[in-house]
């Protein structure tokens, strides 16, 4: 049992290292390429909503940056995580190892890139005038809930992506719609009070909102709000793992048939 754990831990480490190197091409330039997506998104939205359409809200650059970075983690982790069984089918068909490792290592490699993005984001926020406060210490908790949520989604969706060849496309449409239905670049207040209730059902709206409150307003997350989100993330992770576990014995069959 302990022997197996050590073997799996080593496999986890090596696969994560390879996944990360593939994503970042092992170089600073490679990492900058990965940063390009959220950076470009930030610049376009910033130009659009502050320079061209007038001042949208106070402290908009920080507000926008947190939204873009957090939503980018959601999109990248779920998309690459759910595609991991497909992209690593050669390993899956030739080596015996826990199948969960493919999804977990991919999400972990995305999380490493995200951690570096967060450091740059905090530096940027400080450069914009934000003052580090005690509430910032709760930010890793909010991020951990987000990671748990996306890991659960990636686990469940990876089975669907292996089973249905067009599921990645479907997910791409869903995440694009999700981007516009989440207050990433706009304020929830801008869509009217009656429509705001729909945002209650969007977990990403809650997570991004908590992150903004914590980093920009210096507010500690309300424990009830945090507990509800943690429960939801645990539920999603539990369902994702249950789906994955139920289909685990058939994953190789899906590759071959």
């Amino acid at each position: 049992m302990i022997d197996n754990f050590a073997v799996y831990a080593n496999q986890f480490r090596e696969l994560t290292r390879c996944e990360w190197k593939l994503r970042e091409q092992s170089t600073l330039l490679g990492f900058l390429w990965t940063l390009l997506n959220p950076l470009l998104m930030f610049l376009v939205l910033y130009m659009l909503f502050t320079r061209w359409m007038g001042g949208f809200m106070a402290n908009y650059p920080g507000y926008l940056l947190i939204g873009v970075v957090q939503f980018n983690l959601f999109t990248t982790a779920t998309t690459t995580g759910m595609g991991s069984l497909n992209s690593r089918r050669s390993i899956m068909m030739n080596f015996i190892m826990p199948r969960e490792l493919f999804v977990l290592t991919t999400v972990c490699s995305v999380a490493i890139s995200h951690a570096i993005e967060l450091v740059l984001m905090l530096v940027f926020l400080i450069a914009l005038g934000a003052v580090p406060r005690l509430s910032w210490l709760t930010f890793p908790l909010i991020d951990a809930v987000l990671l748990l949520f996306v890991t659960g989604l990636a686990l469940g969706l990876s089975v669907l992506a292996l089973r249905f060849i067009d599921f990645l496309r479907i997910w791409s449409i869903i995440t694009t719609a999700g981007f516009f239905l989440t207050p990433v670049f706009y304020s929830a207040a801008a869509i009217g009070a009656d429509r705001q209730r729909f945002l209650r059902f969007n977990p990403m709206a809650h997570i991004i909102g908590l992150a903004r409150d914590c980093l920009l307003e210096g507010r500690f997350p309300a424990w009830r709000h945090m507990a509800a989100l943690t429960a939801l993330a645990l539920l999603v992770a539990g369902i994702g793992y249950a789906v994955f576990n139920k289909q685990k014995r058939r994953l190789s069959d899906y590759v071959l048939s």
Binding site: C18, K21, L22, Q25, S90, I91, M93, N94, F95, I96
Partner: peptide, 15 residues
Amino acid sequence: ISTFFSIGSGLFSEL
């Protein structure tokens, strides 16, 4: 058990 089913199995050509 160690397995070999196909040439280059499980390798990353970019690395």
